[in-house]
């Protein structure tokens, strides 16, 4: 078996989700190649070559791939993927955008968001907002799957010595153009990689009050997340949403503040190791998944928490 893993990166750095995806590839077994498609992305190729367990790194360095436009990258992935038994990508927004397109070009039904490898053709994945886990077997010749990073412990970023090859296939579908982006700037750890996450919900009342959470976060080295209600209300930007349709997190410690615990929110955080809930309503469903529940007004409890840490 031979597995092609699509690297997640920003042309400068290899992103952590790639290491979890390589871990899933190891669980399948076989030779693991990594594709780095980008522009001026040689440094990423070098980083990928050092990752434990990688046989070969393919670097497709071209302006057409600079912004990970799915129309271009999917074509490349389909061209290269033909020679593999498996094609895997992290289930990030980049992976979710590109991979189904590549699969369709290969006439394959992809498997989204796998959380376990049962065998080379059988995988587990959550459906219905994580209320049900399905075991799914693929009969396609090539298995194409996106990998939920939190379900696989990352392989080591060091210790490998893969060869690096450049790929000169240039696929430019010429139907899409990058116009611009607004990326959140933050000194705090990234939500999906943080060891501690503290999230606020509608109970926070406004964006300014999130300052209370930022203070606690800075003491704990935590990332800050939010419920959909808090994002919809404009308290914080969309990239902070945790849940079925936002980000999936599984930190060592998750602190939910002023969040009721709707199933769509739980879908994004219930695999956290330890869950703390602070809510003034003792009936709030979040308490049914919390290891430690504190029934209190958050405007008293959170500042006190900050001083006691």
């Amino acid at each position: 078996m031979s597995i092609l893993v699509i690297a997640e990166h920003d042309n400068a750095e290899l992103k952590g989700a790639t290491l979890n995806t390589i871990a899933a590839a190891k669980a399948i077994g076989g030779d693991i190649d990594v594709l780095v498609a980008g522009n001026n992305c040689a440094a990423v190729g070098e980083a990928a070559a050092k990752v434990e367990g990688v046989a070969k790194v393919l670097v497709a360095d071209n302006a057409a791939y600079e912004h990970q436009l799915a129309e271009n990258v999917a074509k490349l992935v389909a061209d290269l993927g033909k020679n593999y038994s498996h094609v895997l990508a992290p289930a990030t927004t980049t992976g979710k955008n590109m991979l189904p397109r590549a699969a369709a070009l290969l006439d394959v039904q992809p498997i989204s968001d796998i959380i376990a490898v049962e065998s080379a053709d059988t995988f587990k994945r959550p459906i219905y907002a994580g209320n049900v886990i399905a075991t799914v077997q693929s009969s396609d010749a090539i298995k194409v799957a996106s990998v939920r990073a939190t379900a696989f412990d990352p392989v080591s970023a060091e210790g490998g010595s893969a060869s690096v090859e450049s790929v000169d296939i240039v696929d430019d579908a010429a139907v899409s153009k990058f116009v611009g982006e607004e990326l959140a700037e933050s000194d705090r750890p990234e939500l999906t990689a943080a060891r501690v996450v503290i999230s606020g919900g509608r109970g926070m009342q406004n964006g300014d009050n999130f300052e209370l959470l930022y203070k606690v976060a800075d003491k704990l080295g935590a990332a800050v997340g939010a419920s959909r209600a808090a994002v919809d209300a404009g308290f914080v930007p969309n990239d902070m949403q945790v849940g079925q349709t936002g980000k999936i997190v599984a930190p060592d410690l998750y602190i939910a503040v002023g969040i009721s615990g709707a199933i769509q929110h739980l879908a994004g955080m219930k695999d956290s190791k330890v869950i703390v809930a602070i809510n003034k309503d003792e009936e709030a469903p979040i308490f049914s998944v919390a290891d430690y529940g504190l029934v209190a007004d958050l405007f008293d409890a959170v500042p006190e928490l900050e001083t006691k840490l």
């Binding site: 075991t135 799914v136 308490f287 049914s288 006691k308």
Partner: peptide
């Protein structure tokens, strides 16, 4: 269909924990 669902099962249940009295 290209994939077959072999089985569906509930996710591992989380046990509700305890309520703490205060921040301390």
């Amino acid at each position: 269909p290209r994939t077959k669902t072999l089985k569906v099962e509930p996710p591992a249940e989380r046990q509700a924990g305890i309520k703490v009295a205060d921040v301390a």
